[in-house]
Nucleic acid binder design. Structure first.
Lengths: 211, 211
DNA sequence: TCAAATAAATGACTCGTAGTCATTACATGA
DNA sequence: TCATGTAATGACTACGAGTCATTTATTTGA
């Protein structure tokens, strides 16, 4: 019976169409201000229909966060694929992360915002999906670290998982700050964001190689 | 004419009372779920009165963020006062930041959330006050770095302001991640948050001292 | 001391939006 | 062609942010 399968596919497609509409509306108007009616109109559906596919506005938002994480994962995968040594992979990941934050500002903001929002009444299922996507991303970093510790480009007294958590937290925080303070950095402190990122690389390189 | 002054003081006091009430309500119920009616009730005032003192719910929220930053500043000041060398001051600041995030979880969340919220429709005045409070905090870090570069405990080829931005971004990101993932870290990865913070210290020490 | 003037506080009200649900339109299979 | 299940609709409800005409309290000065 291929009908149920087709139904399934169509349901998935619809979900995606709604997310496409939500993306446009949320990113142009701002998440807080955007309304579900607007999303519905953009998707050429009635509001009621949205709620057949997503249990709440927040769930739609989580859907976007998941998309963002999947895209980030792709950036990371592309980055590690181009380098051989572990330390080079790590650096490439860092660069990819920063590039991601510039090229997909909205996605990055979505991730950052998701990470700091109290999950007071969040939908469990959607939240778990997001969390899993986050794990996927982290796994890439862990692998790169392990590679580096094996090929000798990274000191081998580190715990790769711990270090991956550390690096990710640090990097996310740094980029978040840059993305928030960009104007101030340039205007008031005459600092080019790129310099900060490079300082980060330099210092991280230092502490990953020298024991 | 002391009356206008007394009026001014009373206005300030009222504002504080409202913030006290808001703190309780927002922190126990969650910012998104808490209502202005609840705040009003806790403050034993009518809702209309709240709006004589704060132009919006978000403005109340910013008031709390400012409070949080002022408290953080105090933590930092206490930290640097206890140490002599620059590098020790930096480490003490890091420790203070982490302690702050544990002892004042709600305040920390408020800061983190403020930092990642789109300021789509924020009140200019209140926002500026927050930003200024943030600068105050950063200044302490810059001074500690400068001290360290002068007393020889920190390599002196760094730009203190740039480095302060970097450290703050990194540390905030790390603590944010810890505070978000604490349970998962312990349960699934068997990592004690404290270890992550120590790894951070170690690696930061490495890169601040060794050229 | 009191009346007018000014300031502070109130809460019923409006307005907008998230989420619901009875109803309608459509697809499928007999 | 009809019966049954599934998808879609949009008018409706519930609720909360923010307003404002009215009331209450305080100050002034005659």
């Amino acid at each position: 019976m291929g009908i149920t399968e087709r139904r399934e596919r169509e349901k998935e497609r619809r979900k995606n169409e709604i997310l496409n509409a939500a993306e446009k509306v949320f990113f142009t108007r701002g998440i807080a201000v955007a309304t579900m009616d607007e999303v519905a109109e953009k998707a050429e559906l009635s509001k009621g229909t949205l709620y057949l596919y997503f249990p709440s506005k927040q769930a739609v938002y989580f859907g976007l966060a998941e998309r963002a994480l999947i895209k980030l994962k792709q950036f990371f995968l592309d980055a590690v694929a181009q380098k051989k040594s572990g330390i080079d992979k790590i650096r490439a990941i860092g660069e990819a992360y920063y590039r991601f934050s510039k090229e997909h500002r909205d996605y990055f903001q979505t991730i950052a915002h998701w990470e700091t929002t109290e999950m007071e009444f969040a939908d469990e299922t959607v939240m778990m999906q997001c969390h899993e996507a986050g794990r996927d991303v982290q796994e890439i970093v862990v692998k790169a670290l392990t590679t580096g510790m094996q090929d000798g480009s990274i000191r081998n007294d580190l715990d790769p998982v711990k270090t991956a958590f550390l690096l990710e937290g640090q990097m996310t925080g740094l980029i978040q700050m840059i993305s928030r303070e960009e104007k101030h950095l340039k205007m008031m402190d005459h600092i080019d964001p790129q310099e900060l990122v490079e300082l980060f690389y330099e210092m991280t390189y230092q502490s990953l190689t020298v024991k």
